[in-house]
Amino acid sequence: MSRRTAALVGVVAVVAAAFVWLLATHSPSASTPTGSAAVGRLAPALTGTTLAGSAFDLDDLRGDWVVVNFFATWCPPCVAEHPELVRFADDNRDRAQVVSVAFDDTDERVAAFFRENGGDWPVLTGDTGAASLDYGVVKLPESYVVDPNGTVVAKLDGGVTADELQAVIDGRTP
């Protein structure tokens, strides 16, 4: 084998090996499309009128942990995670607050949902599309954990558990 051929074969072999290695090590399941640029930044503004009729502004809750939960009553995993949110809220009344943002839903349905499933935190309804865009919501349900300084520290999607949320506000990696 001449030196040039050897060099060429070597280059091709290395590139091919790297290529195979790349495909072999990439795990498809780990890469759910979550792309959110919100984590690590100040939480986008979130204002509106709650279901109960009072004005809401996320900035008023500085100093507490806030879990901003995007959900809809027509979304089965949202219904499934709800008890976990209730448990989390009950466990952390002193230092954390849950806020739910209903997406593409009616006041009546949301009110009925909370009557049935519990939960006494503020719920924003109506025109919430802009908020979900601001947070970068892809697929309901999604929860964003905002720390006492107003920074989004985590995004949890596809149904949360109370333990996961607890872990985040306790500063443990969930």
Binding site: M1, S2, A6, V12, A16, A17
Partner: peptide, 24 residues
């Protein structure tokens, strides 16, 4: 998936090896 990838790797290795061997 991994099995097909392995087969791909074998084909590439055999081809590159043979062409290199007979190259000149």
């Amino acid at each position: 998936g991994p099995i097909l990838l392995g087969f791909f790797a074998v084909i590439v290795a055999v081809s590159v090896g043979l062409i290199g061997w007979r190259g000149d």
